[in-house]
Design a protein around this nucleic acid. Sequence first.
DNA 1: ATTCAGTTTAACCATTTGGTTAAATGTAAG
DNA 2: CTTACATTTAACCAAATGGTTAAACTGAAT
Lengths: 203, 203
Amino acid sequence: MVKTKVDSEELILDAARKVFTRKGMTGARMQEIADEAGINKALLHYYFRNKKQLFDAIFDDVFPRFIPALIQILNSDNSIEEKLSHFVSHYIDEFSHKAYIPVFILNEIHQNPERLASMSMAIEGMKTSRFMVQISEGIETGLYHPIKPAHLLSNLISLSVFPLISQPLLTRVFQMDDKEYMQFLEEKKKLIPELILESIKRN
Amino acid sequence: MVKTKVDSEELILDAARKVFTRKGMTGARMQEIADEAGINKALLHYYFRNKKQLFDAIFDDVFPRFIPALIQILNSDNSIEEKLSHFVSHYIDEFSHKAYIPVFILNEIHQNPERLASMSMAIEGMKTSRFMVQISEGIETGLYHPIKPAHLLSNLISLSVFPLISQPLLTRVFQMDDKEYMQFLEEKKKLIPELILESIKRN
DNA sequence: ATTCAGTTTAACCATTTGGTTAAATGTAAG
DNA sequence: CTTACATTTAACCAAATGGTTAAACTGAAT
């Protein structure tokens, strides 16, 4: 085996993910990434020719990294109610201490919309998930009001993501400490599925 | 009068707002701001000693710029239903072609949470608005379920902002063209108030 | 023992970028 | 006319930054 090639590349990617997702493409420094990885700039450029190439490697990986788990939830054998609950809980747990990740994604997409290419495939699975089929069935059988998939999914994700990315604002305005904010998120795990269900259920 | 001092300063601020809100603090270039303002770098530094000072001037102004209109809606004499409708419509109209503004705010706050100081005062007015009083009254009279203000406001803003800042994603995933996306937003103007009302109304 | 990729060191380079300076010009007001 | 600030021009500076290079070293594989 060739020494530890894989390890170093992985080390660099981990460091780059950390720095890029926190500081963004323009705010990140190659030296900082090298330091974070515990190596030197020469080796960094030995593995990744330039900043853009390294950034692309990171960006194209950030999104696909957490989407499969969500799709799996939507494709399970559970009921709609359980899926909603699992989805929101998983989402909140995943990002409650990493809200900079969704912010990073949103920001970089707005800076450079072409980057979307690497993401849309990962999302495709949500549109075509068993969950969406169950919803369609519920609509056909008259259990639910008709609702466009785009509205349902955007509502679900809006309500899940925004409380996370607006944490600094929320905690300040409503004077929550860390514990109260975590409590707030726990309440969201119940309230969001209820809200979504109420919005589609026929009375 | 001293020539056009006010005009130039205003020119610079307008240009800086444009560049900063699109590229962010780290992505913006002083030269680009000067170009955008139609002046030269020397004059730019003549008015604003350095980049940080100029950025602060912009950032501290971006948020307070659109909050008062929203607070006015929440403090009007209208019914809760009308306020919800006006609020969402105004929000969507304001940012449907400027989604980079909320993205900018979210990103810069995450980069530097201390900046929140200039914003929290502007938001205070939402917490204490007549709208929130009306909600409290509705809860007391048994018309509405009890709901914490933090949840109600976060739901309202989540549902309004996220469809805007996730436009690139949404339009790609659901293959909407510009016209279809605008139609989608129009539907949101009805659906969001309905959703919020359903969530608090007692059956 | 040799080979060869991985790694370090350290100097170096070119460009970008924020910021400064000085001199000349414009322009409105006293 | 003179004063005083506004503005331009154009050169300049220093630091930061992305990226390169060459030489030496390491350590596993042949």
